[in-house]
């Protein structure tokens, strides 16, 4: 039984999005970036949202984080646990973000503060949300970096981000995202900028975190391969809508939507199907 059918027997989803619509006003009407999206992420589940550019996958993620540009007009509902995210005040949202909900962006180098040592930066959520001293937060950062397999974390907390490789920076972002043991991690193409060998390590790390902490992960990507390796449940987005959803096995073995089929057929592979028996 997959996680989803187990979860459906009892309890409620970690994240529940219903009829989400995001419009960007233009002079002549509006551009609808997200068009009636509903999706769920269950506890301990890794859910993939896959789509090409312009599909609305990132806008869906940013809506959940309440990080959309100001001019975006949002409707629908987003619930994290019992909290209705779209109704929260900015102050309450700030409390939630980083605490119950964390974000791992694509470009770790740009997300990290270049003038702040890794240790302070990774520990900063603990200072802001848990009232730890910076000293205590840095020593906790050592543990967090160790948990994401950064070698010699006692020494590396003193480094600045530029002293970290791309893969290490992404690990530091993940460590920071884990600091407050969130219910949900939203990751937007977190491995797209990485070399494949490093990507494989980061994906393994995310699975490990899910297994260890039972954290739910909403994973945004354009890469079908990453979805196949990592996700339990998949939503396929196209032009602002979810065109298909299913378990990862079902989506890959028995795709029903024409767009999903086209995506699968377009994906170059090292394992050509004619050789598959």
């Amino acid at each position: 039984m997959d996680i989803r059918s187990r979860a459906l027997q009892d309890g409620r989803p970690t994240l529940s999005i219903r009829d989400l619509t995001v419009d960007f006003p233009k002079r002549d009407g509006a551009f609808r970036a997200v068009d009636g999206v509903s999706l769920d992420v269950w506890p301990g589940e890794i859910v993939g949202v896959i789509g090409e550019s312009g599909s609305g996958k990132t806008m869906t993620a940013l809506s959940t984080l309440r990080m959309l540009p100001k001019r975006a007009v949002v409707s629908g509902s987003i619930e994290l646990g019992q909290r209705r995210i779209l109704d929260l005040s900015p102050a309450d949202m700030r409390k939630l973000r980083g605490d119950r909900l964390s974000f791992i962006p694509q470009d770790a180098m740009r997300a990290l503060n270049p003038t702040m040592r890794i240790g302070r930066q990774v520990g900063e959520p603990l200072v802001l949300h848990r009232n730890l001293s910076f000293k205590a937060a840095v020593s906790r950062a050592v543990d967090l970096l160790r948990a994401v397999h950064v070698r010699e974390p006692e020494r590396r907390v003193e480094d600045y981000p530029h002293g970290f490789s791309g893969g290490m920076q992404q690990r530091a972002m993940i460590a920071m995202g884990l600091a407050l043991e969130p219910e949900l991690i939203i990751a937007d193409e977190p491995t797209t900028a990485l070399d494949v060998t490093v990507q494989a390590q980061v994906l393994k790390l995310l699975k490990e975190i899910r297994d260890r902490e039972a954290t739910s992960i909403l994973f945004i990507t354009h890469d079908l391969g990453v979805v196949a390796e990592l996700c339990d449940w998949v939503y396929v987005m196209y032009r602002g809508r979810i065109v298909e959803q299913g378990s990862v096995e079902r989506i890959f073995m028995d795709p029903r939507d024409d767009y999903t089929k086209m995506l699968l057929a377009s994906t170059p592979t090292l394992f050509p199907r004619e050789a598959a028996i």
Binding site: G225, K261, T267
Partner: peptide
């Protein structure tokens, strides 16, 4: 081995 290739795990009849 590091390449996340959907058709390593799934041989979809597409």
């Amino acid at each position: 081995d590091a390449v996340p290739d959907p058709f390593r795990r799934f041989r979809a009849p597409v």
